[in-house]
């Protein structure tokens, strides 16, 4: 069973970015720190003067889990983007847990016909 992503006013620019094929992150205008899209203040300096910047869409796996749900078995994980932030995402191109440090690349999906969400494909894995 899939649960479509739903935008709200705060996340609208981020979902719009994904619809254009771009994963947006927050960058602090005060200190330059790049952080997750859902922060309300900069984790480095607590400023709320944040702007959006595009991610390169590359990173590595920090931790992976496997949901063996027979209807929809999925590998999920925390991915560390090369810019620094960690995202909770689906890992594509594997049906097993992958080692920490495995390189991954952004691939945007639309689960359940909802808003687009960032997923990451294991580098070198073929598309199925």
């Amino acid at each position: 069973m899939t649960f479509p992503a739903l935008r709200d006013s705060v996340s609208a620019p981020w979902f719009d970015g994904l619809a254009r094929g771009v994963l947006l992150l927050h960058r602090c205008r005060e200190c330059g720190h790049v952080s997750r899209p859902d922060v309300a203040s900069c984790p480095a300096c607590r400023s709320d003067n944040l702007t959006w910047v595009p991610s390169r869409g590359t990173g590595c796996v920090v931790a992976a889990i496997l949901d063996p749900n027979p209807d929809d078995p999925v590998v999920l994980g925390l991915v560390e983007l090369d810019e620094g932030p960690w995202l909770h995402v689906r890992l594509l191109g594997t049906s097993e847990l992958v080692p920490v440090g495995t390189r991954v690349t952004l691939e945007i999906c639309r689960p359940g016909g909802g808003e687009p969400v960032p997923s990451f494909r294991i580098d070198g894995a073929e598309r199925t």
């Binding site: 981020w14 909770h88 808003e115 969400v117």
Partner: peptide, 16 residues
């Protein structure tokens, strides 16, 4: 499952 916004992207990805 009641999440909206950023959190709902994680739910949609499978963090249910």
């Amino acid at each position: 499952l009641e999440a909206t916004g950023f959190r709902s992207a994680e739910t949609a990805s499978g963090f249910t």
